[in-house]
Amino acid sequence: MLSRTADSLYWLGRYMERAGNIARGLQVALRLTSVTSAVARRDNAWRGLLTASGCAPGFAATGEPLTREAVVRYLAAEPANPSSILSCIEAARRNARTVRTALTTDMWEAVNETWSEGRRSTDDTFAPDNLPAFLDWVKSRTILFNGAYADTMLRDEAWSFVRLGTMCERADNTARVLDVHHHALMGAEEGGTIAFVQWQAILRSVSALRAYHWVFHARLEPKRIAELLILRPELPRSVVACYARIEETLEGIATAHGGRRGECHRLAGEMHARLRFGRIDDIMEGGLHNFLTATIDRNLELGRQIQDFYLQA
C-alpha cells in the first residue's frame, strides 16, 4: 500500500472519531452547565472542554469571550478550527474521496452523506433549541461509519489503517477527558452534588455511565471511574482497550510487511503492557494527573512514530 493511501485511511478514522468525541463533549458540557449555578463553574466546564479537545490555544487566539455561544460555535462549526465538528467531517470526506476505491460502498455513503447533510447546516442549527438534535445526529453518523468499516471491510491493510487511526484518536480523547477532570477524582471518596455531577460528566463524555454500573454494581466512586476508563479492557473506550487494539493492529501490519517493525511498535507494546499490568492504587498514589499527562505525551509520540514509519512518502 502506498504511504499516501495509508495516510488518508488513518486520518479518515481519526477525523470521524474526533467529530463524535467533540459532539459528546459538547453534550456533557451543556448538561453540566445547565445544573451548575455558579458562573465560575460554568466557565470551567467550557474551559475544560476546550482543553480536552486540544482547542484551547486556538480559541484563545480568536479573542472571543468564554461564553456558551462562542465555544459552541468554535467547536461545532468554525472553519478556522481544524478540530471543529464540521471541519472534521470535511477533512474525513476529503480523505475518503482520495482513497475511494479502498472503501466499501457503505463506508463511502456514511462519510459522503454526513458531509452532504453537514453542509446544509446554518446558524439556526447551532441555536440552543436545535443544538441537541445536531449533536445526536453527529454521534449517530460516526457510529454508522464505525459500524460500516467494522462490518463491511476486508481485514486487509486498508481496514488496519482506519482502525489504527480510530483507536489512536480514542485513546487520546479518553486520557484528555480524565486529565481535565482529574481534580474531581483525586478528592475524598464521598462528594456533594457538584462532585457527583462531575463524575457523571466524565463517564458521559465517553458513553460509559451505564457501563460503570454494569461493571461495579455500586454508586459512583472516583477511583473506580479512573479504573474503568484506564485499566478495564471490557470498556471499548478505555485506554487499555484502545492500546490492545493499537498493538494488535500494528502487529498485523508488520506481519503483512514481512515482520518489519519500528519505534511505533515498541511504544505501543510498552504502553499496552504498562496498562495491562497496571494497578489503579499505584496510579492514584503516584498522581493521576502525572500518569495521564505522561500517557497523553506517549500518545502524541506514538502518532509521530506511526507517521514517520508508515505514512510519509
Rank of each mutant, 00 (worst) to 15 (best):
L2Y: 04
T5Y: 06
W11T: 05
W11M: 01
L12T: 01
M16D: 07
R24C: 01
Q27P: 00
Q27F: 05
T33P: 00
S37W: 11
A38H: 06
A40L: 06
N44H: 12
W46D: 05
W46M: 00
W46F: 01
R47S: 14
R47A: 15
R47K: 13
G48L: 01
L49C: 01
T51H: 05
A52D: 10
A52N: 05
G58Y: 02
G58C: 04
F59A: 07
A60L: 14
P65T: 03
V71Q: 08
V71I: 03
V71H: 00
V72G: 01
S83P: 07
I85E: 02
S87R: 10
C88P: 10
R94Y: 03
T98L: 10
T101W: 10
D106T: 11
V111Q: 06
W115A: 10
E117P: 11
T125H: 00
T125F: 05
P128K: 03
L131D: 02
F134T: 09
D136K: 09
D136Q: 12
W137G: 03
W137L: 11
V138D: 07
S140D: 15
S140F: 04
Y149V: 11
A150Q: 14
T152A: 02
L154K: 02
D156C: 07
D156G: 13
E157S: 07
S160P: 00
S160A: 15
V162G: 03
R163G: 04
C168M: 15
C168N: 06
N173I: 14
V177D: 05
H182K: 11
G187K: 11
G187T: 06
G187F: 09
G191W: 00
T193Q: 14
F196Y: 14
V197S: 13
V197L: 15
I202G: 03
R204N: 07
S205C: 10
S205K: 04
Y212H: 02
Y212T: 01
R224G: 06
R232T: 10
E234G: 04
I246L: 05
I246S: 04
E247H: 10
E248L: 15
A254N: 00
G259F: 11
G259W: 10
R260M: 15
C264F: 11
L267G: 01
H272S: 02
L275T: 00
R276G: 14
G278N: 09
R279I: 02
I280F: 03
I280G: 05
E285R: 15
E285H: 13
G287H: 02
G287E: 01
L292Q: 00
L292R: 04
T293Q: 14
R298V: 14
N299L: 10
E301V: 10
L302R: 00
G303Y: 05
Q307F: 13
L311Y: 01
Q312I: 12
